[in-house]
Amino acid sequence: MSEQASFGYEDIPADEKVERVGAVFSSVARKYDVMNDAMSVGMHRLWKDKFVRRVKPREGEVILDMAGGTGDIAFRMADEGAEITVSDINQDMLDVGIERAMKRGIDGLVWSRQNAEELAFADRTFDAYTIAFGIRNVTHVDKALAEAFRVLRHGGRFFCLEFSTTEWPGFKEAYDAYSHKLVPKIGQAIAGDAESYRYLIESIRRFPPMREFEAMIRTAGFSQTRVEPILGGLVAIHSGWKV
């Protein structure tokens, strides 16, 4: 039997996941940021602001923003003077990010199509590695984490912003009902695509719980790992150091 991978609630051959996830993001790329605002009532902006404050990008640092397609995290870090490479496996997402950067007059970003599991960068290239709302879409999360560790310099830091499962009683049930019943309908109304957003919600449910994912980060070689839950763990900031 061929290796299986999750695609939402469905299990599919692992070698099909990249193509199917790619189709999802190509479909939603043009409406991705509008949908983020609609689904989170704008809170994703606050989460990303907090995330970048934790990263603490500094002038002269070289940072890889993986799965950074539309530029949301990169734009925030570039404001601090860091040298940012924005990478994504999906060219449609990168194209949206490049257009947004041009409209905002943001120069100096490097845009590079990359597979998180097989980065083309040399060992010990970056001071920091960031990935926001992207790692749950990777076929082999352990390979992506190993690559993050490889391309970081000694003393480099890893930061991941990702959905998880809230531990707040009551809120968890309310969010589950909202996400499964309403988000696909919002996706249909705004992006003309209910199925892609159904997958994105289901992919959250299949992602490992916070502590399990933290253990995966440690297994990849990172030290001083930390989890910072937001809204009881609906979203979490994961971090670790290469020492």
Score class of each variant (00 low, 15 high):
1 M>A: 12
1 M>D: 08
4 Q>T: 13
5 A>Q: 03
5 A>P: 04
7 F>R: 02
11 D>H: 08
15 D>Q: 06
19 E>K: 12
19 E>P: 00
26 S>C: 10
28 V>E: 06
34 V>H: 03
35 M>Q: 01
38 A>T: 07
38 A>K: 01
41 V>M: 12
45 R>Q: 14
48 K>G: 11
48 K>N: 11
51 F>I: 07
54 R>Y: 14
58 R>N: 13
58 R>T: 14
58 R>L: 15
61 E>N: 03
64 L>A: 12
69 G>V: 13
69 G>D: 11
72 D>H: 07
73 I>D: 09
76 R>C: 09
81 G>A: 05
82 A>G: 01
83 E>N: 10
83 E>W: 01
84 I>N: 01
88 D>H: 00
89 I>R: 02
89 I>F: 15
91 Q>E: 15
94 L>E: 06
94 L>V: 12
96 V>R: 06
97 G>W: 06
98 I>A: 10
98 I>R: 10
99 E>W: 00
106 I>G: 04
107 D>E: 13
109 L>R: 00
113 R>W: 03
114 Q>H: 06
115 N>T: 14
121 F>M: 15
124 R>D: 15
126 F>W: 15
132 A>L: 14
141 V>Q: 05
142 D>Q: 12
143 K>D: 15
146 A>L: 08
150 R>H: 09
151 V>R: 05
152 L>E: 03
152 L>M: 07
153 R>F: 00
156 G>R: 01
162 E>V: 10
162 E>M: 04
168 W>T: 15
168 W>K: 11
174 A>V: 07
175 Y>G: 00
176 D>W: 00
179 S>K: 02
181 K>N: 09
182 L>F: 01
184 P>S: 10
186 I>K: 00
187 G>T: 05
187 G>I: 04
188 Q>Y: 09
188 Q>G: 08
190 I>M: 05
190 I>Q: 02
198 R>G: 12
198 R>V: 14
200 L>A: 14
203 S>G: 06
203 S>C: 07
208 P>A: 11
209 P>V: 15
209 P>R: 15
213 F>A: 13
215 A>Y: 11
222 F>H: 01
222 F>M: 03
225 T>E: 04
229 P>I: 12
229 P>M: 08
231 L>S: 08
232 G>W: 07
235 V>C: 07
239 S>H: 02
240 G>E: 06
241 W>Q: 09
